[in-house]
């Protein structure tokens, strides 16, 4: 008993469960992915999987296509989300909070159900599924992840900075483009991270909204794992991991600031 007490008394020991979790569910899977990526079906070291990706045009094309879809989705999310966040930030706190909840509310519904509902809606409206539907579904699904961080940062913008800009001779448009917008860039950055990456790797939305006609990178990954080509699948997901890592590192400045200033719920 007293042993346990002294064990619990040391703050450092409190981290053990977390460390254990990290090792089991983060580190170990990563090691396994790397292992599979660099071995063949017999467990022997090989670079074939990596080569296959580079040589195999289909996978590369799917990847590039996914990046384009993610890019378009992100841009649309910014174009729709920024004004929304701006309007929300100008509203009374109470009202804005209510609207934010309404915004986030669909997120509480399982996203598969949401996407199936979108499919049903498109069917009902006799709009053919396909690329357009895919983009719509992506924007619909990820828009809140763009609105919220931007709203958060806009809402916290120091009012005296806006007054200072006015005071120095900036008209309302100049106030926005010279102070409000640049000050909200960390929010946009964190919104981009929340939208861009998931779009590349989701497969359900693409599958459902294009009746499996358009493949995204996530779909390719899923197919490989599903079909038992684990080694190739591991190589593909490793590639995506590196890609995500590189983008986040490039955004490090922005993302660390965004993290500091609080982003998602």
């Amino acid at each position: 008993m007293s042993n346990l007490k002294s064990f619990m008394g040391r703050r450092r020991n409190w981290t053990i469960p977390y460390a254990l979790f990290l090792v089991l569910f983060v580190l170990l899977p990563l090691v396994i992915i790397v292992y599979y990526a660099f071995t063949n079906i017999d467990g022997k070291f090989t670079l074939d999987n990596i080569k296959k990706f580079w040589i195999h045009p289909e996978a590369m094309q799917v990847f590039l296509y996914s990046v384009v879809v993610a890019f378009i989705t992100t841009i649309l999310c910014i174009l729709i989300g920024y004004p929304a966040a701006y309007i929300l930030s100008k509203m009374e706190q109470q009202k804005a909070k209510l609207l934010i909840i309404l915004f986030v509310l669909p997120m509480w519904v399982n996203f598969l159900i949401r996407t199936l509902a979108t499919v049903a809606l498109f069917d009902f409206l006799k709009i053919p599924l396909g690329e357009g539907a895919l983009i719509f579904g992506m924007v619909y699904n990820f828009l809140p992840f763009m609105v919220y961080p931007i709203y958060n940062i806009l809402q916290k913008t120091d009012q005296s900075l806006i007054e200072a800009a006015q005071d120095l001779g900036a008209n309302p448009r100049q106030v926005f483009f010279k102070t409000v917008f640049p000050l909200s860039i960390p929010g946009i950055t964190s919104g981009i991270i929340m939208v861009f990456m998931p779009v590349i790797s989701t497969f359900a939305i693409a599958e459902l909204l294009t009746i499996n006609n358009i493949k995204l990178f996530g779909t390719t990954l899923q197919e490989n794992i599903y079909n038992g080509t684990w080694n190739y699948g591991a190589a593909l997901s490793l590639f995506m991991l590196v890609f995500i890592g590189a983008t986040i590192l490039l955004n490090r400045e922005g993302s660390s600031k965004a993290a500091e200033e609080g982003t998602l719920i």
């Binding site: 005296s160 900075l161 007054e163 200072a164 005071d167 120095l168 001779g169 008209n171 102070t179």
Partner: peptide, 20 residues
């Protein structure tokens, strides 16, 4: 007359310097 057209400049209490 809105603030940006007034021939007045202000030194704010907590400076309000632009952090960016």
């Amino acid at each position: 007359i809105p603030p940006h057209l007034r021939p007045v400049n202000t030194v704010f209490q907590r400076y309000a310097l632009f952090p960016h």
